[in-house]
Design a protein around this nucleic acid. Structure first.
Lengths: 341, 341
DNA sequence: CATTGCTGTCGATACGCATCGACACCCCCG
DNA sequence: CGGGGGTGTCGATGCGTATCGACAGCAATG
């Protein structure tokens, strides 16, 4: 192993000088700097992470807690991980992974063992039991998702209320007469996840504002049969015909089954009715047919979270007065939207 | 911050005794052990990771290099990450993430900075430029995927050759007359990925062995249009009718488009022909209709890799003489298989 | 009783780096 | 020509843990 002492010896300077060359925390003469950098290059010196962390009280590591819990919707988790990792690297930090199923102890472990300088907590639930613990840690914590009580922690999330509103707004403005919201399956509803409530509220509000007919049906699960059942309920209740129907499907897993069920009934999305999904663009592009969607913007959300995080780490002031930052979803029209009339 | 010295003071022992209680590397009297453990509990002591790493030359961290490169197939990466992380935690290790786009430097960084004790390298290509670098690192490296020259490194992967053989074996044994292999898109073929070649070879071999008609067509890309084009080529060439046709689709991204294209032509998978996909079970279950598939077994592959890894770290002998460990795929019949005749 | 061999504990040290205080040197100004 | 204020470098120290050698106490042995 090459140490900074080896570099110092080769460059003919002291070890501390090497350290100052690398950190830039003291001025160094151009000549010395050159010699040291040359020595670093020659020896291929890389500072020992443990020693650095021990001496500086900074691990240069970000803890990322991901939802691997069984049953959690893992669709679209990857873009978050990807973006967060890349943002971290841009700031010369590394990412250490923890899984949701470790619960609150996972958080204290990361923090108390000085494994990381900050924590990003993904997929935060309404009354997430980790929140009070997170609030008491010695490292800053950024939440992706908005709990009922953020306990002063910084939160970033998609603006689900706005997403719900945008979905119905779009349908209303393209002359649809009625909206059916194909809700989340019962088990998701039972978990009382925050963003579900927010989305539904936004959709309802918009429907009310536009004076447009609005019903909400909950499928038993996200299977093909679940979609069938929900559609049965939705369509028989109102009759299949008459007017322009808009279907809003906020659960990504339900989109493909729903589209398929519609086709089986001879109802072609984009010809006989509109379908708007809430899912990643990738999911929307690859569904058959490609579905008009509101993007979950995982990259934007992640980037915003990381910006806050590094501002906190660098003791810069965090500009927003608010503790909750919401990202605006993006609507992309694809093949499942009825043409304007 | 609570240190082992604090624990020692409270327990009335020396710091080194605390360390020995925790590591179990020297015998400790029951009475002393009790007092120390009580003190640890009381203070909520967690050893400082950096200090521990510095002193013991062990970071208790596994480096995981994931394929986030643009264009890489990210489908199914998550189960690998999940399983690897969980295996690591079972052995009291953490996982640090690196992205493929850091290339070989990412590997030397992880190793030379002593950020981790071992590295898992995912999605290794045939002539992956990282292999020679990996072979020279001071930490063990486990590959997921098999390069042309493993350079003495341990590799774990699905047995793609067997998968190809199993696909055609299944079709042959269920009285199919001919097999069309809807290959990988041209850009994947161009990258000359190892597992693609292996799968195709297995399929060819089996077809030859069974004396069954076999053609292979390559779609331009994984879009719907790409699937259409490939199907056009495959079906016109042989005519749509006559005998029992089996379609093998090894690219997960191509499966849904292909199924859809078939349905559009009035060809119902499971009634008019058979379709076998190579994809995760999850993908197979959620396709419409659910496709008979050979599983990629990400959990098995990951677990095998981690077992080797920890054996290496614990200086246990690694049992296999061979450096390459292949996992047997699992065939699951679903709705796209023709009933036996 | 002297010796040997354990068992259980302690003190000291090393790990590699960051940082603080000291200080030698030089330049500029009085 | 003397003093003051930078500038650039160094030595020393500390971060918190693991581990080595030492050794006190005790039991078993000849």
């Amino acid at each position: 192993m090459v140490t900074s002492r080896d570099v110092a010896r080769l460059a003919g300077v002291s070890q501390s000088t090497v350290s100052y060359v690398m950190s830039g925390r003291r001025s160094i003469s151009p000549e010395t700097r050159r010699r040291v950098e040359e020595a670093i290059e020659t020896l291929g010196f890389q500072p020992n992470a443990g020693a650095r962390a021990l001496a500086s009280q900074r691990s240069q590591v970000i803890g990322l807690v991901v939802p691997f819990a069984p049953g959690a919707d893992m669709t679209g988790v990857l873009p978050f991980i990807e973006t967060i990792t890349k943002c971290a690297r841009e700031e010369d930090h590394n990412v250490i992974l923890a899984t949701e199923d470790e619960g609150a102890e996972g958080l204290t472990r990361l923090s108390d063992q000085s494994l990381c300088d900050a924590i990003v907590l993904m997929e935060v639930g309404s009354k997430d039991p980790r929140i009070p613990v997170a609030a008491g840690l010695s490292v800053p914590v950024i939440l992706i998702g908005v709990p009922d009580d953020p306990a002063g922690l910084y939160c970033v999330d998609l603006d689900y209320t706005l997403a719900g509103r945008m979905a119905v707004d779009e349908l209303a403005s393209s002359a649809h007469d009625r909206v059916v919201l194909l809700g989340y399956p019962r088990d998701v509803m039972a978990r009382d996840v925050n963003f579900v409530r927010r989305f539904l509220r936004g959709a309802e509000e918009s429907a009310a504002a536009h004076g447009i007919a609005y019903v909400e049906v909950s499928p038993p699960d996200t299977s093909r049969a679940g979609a069938e059942a929900a559609l049965d309920e939705a369509l028989t209740e109102q009759g299949p015909g008459g007017g322009r129907l808009g279907l809003v499907v906020p659960d990504p897993q339900l989109i493909q089954p729903t589209l398929q069920s519609l086709l089986d009934r001879g109802l072609v999305p984009g010809r006989d009715l509109s379908v708007i999904g809430l899912c990643t663009d990738r999911t929307a592009e690859t569904s058959t047919p490609p579905v008009t969607n509101l993007s979950l913007e995982p990259r934007d959300v992640s980037r915003r979270a990381m910006r806050i995080l590094f501002r906190l780490l660098n003791h810069e002031s965090v500009p927003t007065a608010s503790t909750v930052e919401l990202v605006t979803p993006r609507l992309t029209l694809r093949q499942t939207s009825l043409p304007a009339r």
